[in-house]
Simulated assay, not measured.
Amino acid sequence: MIEWQPIILSLKVAFVSLCFVFVLGVAAAYVMRGFEFPGKAVLEALFTLPLVLPPVVTGFLLLLLIGKQGPVGRFLSEQLQTQIIFTPYAAVLAGTVVAFPLMYQSTKAAFQSIDRSLEDAARTLGANEWRVFFTVTMPLAWHGLVSGLVLSFARALGEFGATIMVAGNIPGKTQTLPLAIYFAAESNDLTLAGSYVLIISLITFSLIYWLNIWTKSRSGSAAPRGVF
């Protein structure tokens, strides 16, 4: 019998992670596009690192950071009498970290493809930087933003390695869908594992299929123009 808690929790974790990923990814891409500073190449490499590191390594590094002996974990324990480790918040953190590079890379590519003369024209007409960003930059980059959002959500939904390191596998509390698949297969409940595999496969396939259809429908249309 399918237990729906891992499915619901995975969707919640992926959605909350996506909110953080969107804000952080857009902010980081905008800063990297518009400013030059010492150490920029190193910072960009760090932003992309979770994309190529084994998720377990990413989880181990997070464990060192938010574990009871880590700087963040110790501060939360001593000053706020709380902890992130082995809670759904840790699953959100893991999902955010591993999905961030996808949002960052998609957004950066979208920002770099924008004709800066359009932004300069908005400034010439009296728009401040915030208005330029929201009425020119963001609409022109929307195609890349949507791609980043879909891919980031799918990545956060399927996260396993980092999640098990920092959130653990606590049924009813931190057991996400990938964890439920692994432990169902380990206990030789292949029917349950197969059901979960089918569900997550259908969700991610639907997301990627929609993205491909949407991309094709947009490919022949002109880029949207900001209003300023």
Rank of each mutant, 00 (worst) to 15 (best):
Trp4Glu: 06
Leu9Phe: 04
Lys12Trp: 13
Phe22Met: 13
Ala29Glu: 02
Val31Ile: 14
Pro38Gln: 13
Val52Tyr: 12
Val52Ser: 15
Pro54Asn: 14
Pro54Gln: 15
Pro54Ala: 14
Val56His: 09
Leu63Thr: 07
Leu63Met: 12
Leu65Lys: 03
Gly67Phe: 09
Lys68Asp: 15
Gln69Lys: 14
Gly70Asp: 05
Pro71Glu: 08
Leu76Met: 15
Ser77Ile: 12
Leu80Met: 14
Ile84Thr: 02
Ile85Gly: 01
Phe86Glu: 05
Thr87Glu: 07
Pro88Gln: 08
Pro88Tyr: 05
Ala91Leu: 02
Val92Phe: 03
Ala94Asp: 07
Gly95Leu: 06
Thr96Val: 11
Thr96Asn: 03
Val97Cys: 06
Phe100Trp: 09
Pro101Cys: 10
Tyr104Ala: 05
Lys108Arg: 15
Ala109Thr: 13
Ala109Ser: 13
Glu119Pro: 04
Asp120Thr: 06
Leu125Val: 06
Ala127Asp: 06
Ala127Leu: 00
Glu129Met: 01
Arg131Gly: 09
Phe133Ile: 13
Phe133Cys: 12
Phe134Met: 08
Val136Trp: 00
Thr137Met: 07
Pro139Asn: 11
Leu145Phe: 03
Gly148Ala: 02
Val150Met: 05
Val150Gly: 01
Ala154Ile: 02
Ala156Val: 11
Phe160Thr: 10
Ala162Ser: 15
Ala162Trp: 01
Ile164Ser: 02
Ala167Gln: 04
Asn169Gln: 10
Gly172Pro: 08
Lys173Ile: 10
Ile181Trp: 00
Tyr182Glu: 06
Ser187Gln: 15
Asn188Val: 12
Thr191His: 09
Ile199Lys: 04
Ser201Glu: 02
Leu202Gln: 04
Leu202Lys: 02
Phe205Cys: 09
Trp210Arg: 03
Ile213Leu: 15
Ala222Met: 12
Ala223Trp: 02
Ala223Gly: 07
Pro224Ser: 10
